[in-house]
Nucleic acid binder design. Structure first.
Lengths: 178, 178
DNA sequence: TATTGTTATACTCTATAACTATA
DNA sequence: TATAGTTATAGAGTATAACAATA
């Protein structure tokens, strides 16, 4: 009631002062991207989380659960749950490593790879939808900027080469963003 | 130890084929941004969702719940819940509009504005952390690209001017991304 | 009838802690 | 003892549907 804070005169240009913070833009766009994943993946019986883990496993190849959790920057216990689900569905296999029997080696099965192909197709259109405002060179530029941010935060490694290079460098702490 | 999957030859450039999809990068960075919000806001007794709604209300000024939900691209029922919480905390006020008594007008209270200032400060450092890999001009560029994506998806309007311009144009459908 | 807002509910995701087993 | 993984649980976010009040 009362004090209705009219601000009609502020109709000027989007100056730096009135900028929505980066984090807000990223958070909202990320939510939207995740929501698109969910809608596209539901018919395939995959959750967004399961897809992300599956996709990352395809990208970086065979790893342990802890290495995968580090790569994704998500919680160990949550990854254990997701890995269990994927295992039950027969999309990945877990085998104890001989050298250190505490560790599991995670690998995509053929079913997993096949499902991932379907998933990529389902996701494609939503992806294009999100990027429709940008032309080819802008998309490349955006990808590059996002990639560098993600790298500096050690999130979501992009290529096997990158992943290996990084694994050599660190291989320490249990949680990447504690 | 053992089978470390040496792949040193693959250390070439990240070709288009091996690129992680945009949606995956956005989803992961968005999750990280949200997690940073949560950590920064917890001491203030705010959830990430509450902050986003509050911040957006500050940005676009007085609106109805449905307009705010449209602006944020989130679900009406969820916004009703969050608005109720913010109201209980005394951070916003809801007043029925005279011209259409179905609608609420939402406005920040002085407490809400004050808390938002504290929140912005708490969030600042995490924000800088995320952007540390980019220099000043790259940040501007990133912001511009994200802004244009968000605009094309009608998510997270950035300025009052933009919001007004947009409100004139559309003012239709109940859910922005159905 | 169509729209605005509310409530309820199920599902997904995040975060913490306590636990087992291997090293 | 330290590390890899598991389980349990509470809290946060998302998605639907059913409903009341107003237009």
């Amino acid at each position: 009631m009362a004090a209705v804070r009219l601000k009609l005169m502020a109709k000027a240009l989007p100056s730096t002062a009135t900028r929505v913070p980066y984090g807000l833009l990223l958070a909202r766009l990320g939510q939207d991207a995740t929501a698109r994943f969910r809608r596209a993946l539901r018919p395939l019986g995959l959750t967004a989380q399961q897809f992300i883990v599956l996709k990352q496993l395809e990208t970086i190849g065979s790893t342990s659960q802890s290495a995968l959790a580090d790569a994704l920057g998500i919680d160990y216990s949550n990854l254990a749950t997701v890995a269990g689900e994927l295992c039950e569905k027969g999309l990945i296999v877990r085998t104890r490593e001989e050298c250190d029997r505490r560790r599991y080696a995670l690998d995509l099965t053929d079913e997993g790879s096949a499902l991932l192909e379907d998933a990529d197709r389902s996701i494609g259109s939503g992806e294009q939808d999100m990027l429709s405002a940008l032309d080819e060179s802008e998309r490349t530029e955006l990808w590059d900027l996002l990639r560098r941010m993600a790298d500096s935060l050690e999130l979501c490694p992009g290529t096997e080469a990158e992943a290996c290079a990084k694994a050599d460098g660190e291989a320490s702490g249990r949680q990447s963003t504690p």
